[in-house]
Every structure is written in structure tokens, then in C-alpha cells.
Design a protein around this nucleic acid. Structure first.
Lengths: 190, 190
DNA sequence: GCACGGCGTTCGTCAAGCCGAACGATTGGA
DNA sequence: TCCAATCGTTCGGCTTGACGAACGCCGTGC
């Protein structure tokens, strides 16, 4: 998960319990063996997997290391499998003013750690975005056309194939310089 | 963070201490005030910020919620700012056999949680990829041309603007069906 | 000058996490 | 069949995290 403003849902302990068992079985370790490798008592691990415990960070960290798994995997719920969204399909956001279309391709359930949008822009007034969640960064890759993008204070002109990374937690802007400009926007809060 | 195989570096407690203070000051809360909002004793918070403690998950969770910050932000080190990579620049991977070019646009230091590649493919033999890190998923968005992509067992044909999500921890493939096919690949291990 | 409120730290108490040992259950081999 | 090994759970102990209270410090204003 990520207890972001949007999603503080679900007691972390249950998630951790499930994650631990899932990851342990995926690796194919016994409870005893994992406990030994992580340097913790197997009784401790047993209690954690039955969600009757409140592990310290060090304990959980040791388990993450022993499992060869990132910390966040243990506190965040699982993930998707396969999905296709055909051109033109998918939830879209339109803006008459800015001649702007954003199609949401992927949002990480439940609390979206990163979103992927397909942007289709026409020349006209710039689309101004207010700051997002602190810690957000946005990646823009232009597919076709030319555009101006980035922090409002220092926008960058981009052409096909250009890539731009900028902080999303400050005011930023997007504006097409040519008709039929399309770009990909990856917005992630780390 | 992510104590992934690659980056188990740094005692988590020090990172947490630093993160905690950083985020608290960014929000502009006093130690006492934050402690009250998180529902923990300020003495506890004080010890955590001085890295003389080993918080339980519940405690850290409460702080994350009170700060309006994702859990991982507290155990992971900071992040980047602004970067531009012009078309043709950036580290690239070529493959004569598969007429394939991948340009690495963004890799999340230090332990890469997701990579963004620009793919340029020409028709020819398919590029076969072995499974990555368990838990990896890949997103493909086609900019131009047509291509075949996805799990080796069930590839999908994609045209301009199409989006595909598939697991990256199984064998998968990529093959251009038209000259000048370009696509964007987001590879993330959650 | 001095009382007041808020700040962050330190101290003693209590509850809870972590541990090792012992337990019943299950499996495989002699 | 019986023994041995391993599994995961449960039970006292010791350790340690979390708590509230008291402390010293600093800026305000009466």
C-alpha cells in the first residue's frame, strides 16, 4: 500500500502477516528456516504471520533482507496481472480550455504510488497544474509533436523522443507547441 | 528504500530518524504537535528522531498517517529533482539480432524500483526476455508502428496509443510488426 | 523582572516484543 | 512399527519500546 492521504486503509499488521506468508511460500522456505536466516526466533515469525504481533522495524527489515524482498513489499498489498487498454479506450480527462486529453492507463491500487497517463494536446493556453502530493515526481516522454513542460518557473521545450523529469509537488505546466502532440506522463509519489 | 538484493545498505533506523525529522519540518509541525496528532508520546518521537529507538510498525504507521506521507517514504532515502534527456541521448542498449534499441530514461536510485525505457524496434526476430525479479510488472505504450508484446505464452498485438500491462517475472517477448516502431516501457518491481 | 506557554529532552514505570525451550502433529526411513 | 527429523504453535523469561511526568530552555507580554 502506502498510507498516503488517499489510502490509509487496512491495518498494516494484517497486510504484513499476509505478505510475510506469501513471500515466504513463494521463496519456498519453511518458517523455521526463514527465522534462522533472518536471525529471529521462529516463535516471533509465527506470531507475525498470524497477525498477532506488532513487529519492530529491525525485525521486519531482517525478514525483508532474508527474503530478498523490498521493505515496501511487506507493508503494501499485492498487485495486478495483465491488462490491455486500446487506443481511445480507458478513463479520460478532457479540458476544453487547454485542448487537453489525459487517459489514465495505470493507477496502482489501492493507493496509487504511480499513475501512467497518455496525454494528447493541441496548441492553445497552457494547462496549469497545482502541486500534487509532496514527494511526487513526473516523467514526460514526447511521442509526437512539440511541447513545453516542467515546473512553471522553468519549463522545458521537448520534441519527439525527449524525456523530462521534474518535481510534481510544485506548480507545473504543459502546453502543446504543435498540433497532434502526444506524450506519456508518469506521475509517481515515492 | 527497498532493501532489495541490490540495496540493503544503511541501518534503517538512521534513515527513519532522518526521514522523520525531514518530513516533520517540511510540514512545519513541532515535535509535540506531531506526537499529539499521531497519538504517540512525544518522548517516543524524540527518541526516534535521535535514532535511539526501534519503532514498532504501528508507531511508524501512525506517524506516516499524521504526516500524510506514504510508509515507504519514511524508510527510503530521498529522491531526485529535474532531468532532461534529449532524443538520442542517454544510455542505450542495442541488439543487432533483434533490431532493437532500449534507452534508459530513468532508473530509481539506489535500488531501482522502476525503470523507464524508450524502445525503438524494427521488424525481425522477436526479442525474448528472461523473467526479471519476482513481482516485476511491465507497462508498454506504443507511440508509433505496431508490435507484438507481452508474456511469451500470450503476446498481444499493439498499435499506436495502445497500452499493455503484463507480469515481468515470466518469460516475455517484444517484436516490431512495422518499421519505425517506438514504444515506452515502464518496468517496475513493486 | 517575572510569570506564562510552548519547545525538545530525560527519567522511571509498565506493557509488549522478542527469545529459547518444550510441545503435539506430520512425514520418511530403518 | 518405531524412531528420528522437521514442521508450526504455545508457554515463561528477559529485554526493550512506549508512556506520562518532570525538567531545563527560550521567547512573550503583563
Amino acid at each position: 500500500m502506502s498510507n498516503t492521504g488517499a489510502s490509509n486503509s487496512g491495518a498494516p499488521l494484517d497486510v504484513i502477516a499476509a505478505s510475510l506468508r506469501r513471500e515466504r511460500e513463494r521463496v519456498g522456505l519453511s518458517l523455521s528456516e526463514l527465522a534462522k536466516r533472518a536471525g529471529i526466533a521462529k516463535s516471533t515469525l509465527s506470531q507475525l504471520e498470524s497477525a498477532s504481533g506488532n513487529p519492530s522495524v529491525e525485525t521486519l527489515w531482517a525478514l525483508g533482507v532474508a527474503l530478498g524482498v523490498p521493505f515496501s513489499r511487506l507493508v503494501d498489498p499485492p498487485t495486478p496481472r495483465v491488462r490491455v487498454i486500446r487506443a481511445g479506450e480507458g478513463p479520460a480527462i478532457y479540458s476544453e480550455r487547454a485542448h487537453y486529453t489525459a487517459t489514465l492507463l495505470a493507477s496502482c491500487p489501492p493507493g496509487a504510488r504511480r499513475d501512467i497517463y497518455l496525454l494528447q494536446l493541441e496548441p492553445g493556453p497552457a494547462r496549469e497544474s497545482e502541486p500534487h502530493m509532496p514527494g511526487t515526481v513526473e516523467h514526460v516522454i514526447v511521442s509526437a509533436g512539440r511541447m513545453l513542460a516542467g515546473p512553471r518557473t522553468e519549463p522545458v521545450e521537448l520534441g519527439p523522443g525527449d524525456y523530462l523529469l521534474y518535481p510534481g509537488d510544485v506548480p507545473h505546466t504543459a502546453q502543446a507547441l504543435e498540433p497532434g502532440t502526444t506524450a506519456l506522463l508518469v506521475s509517481e509519489h515515492v
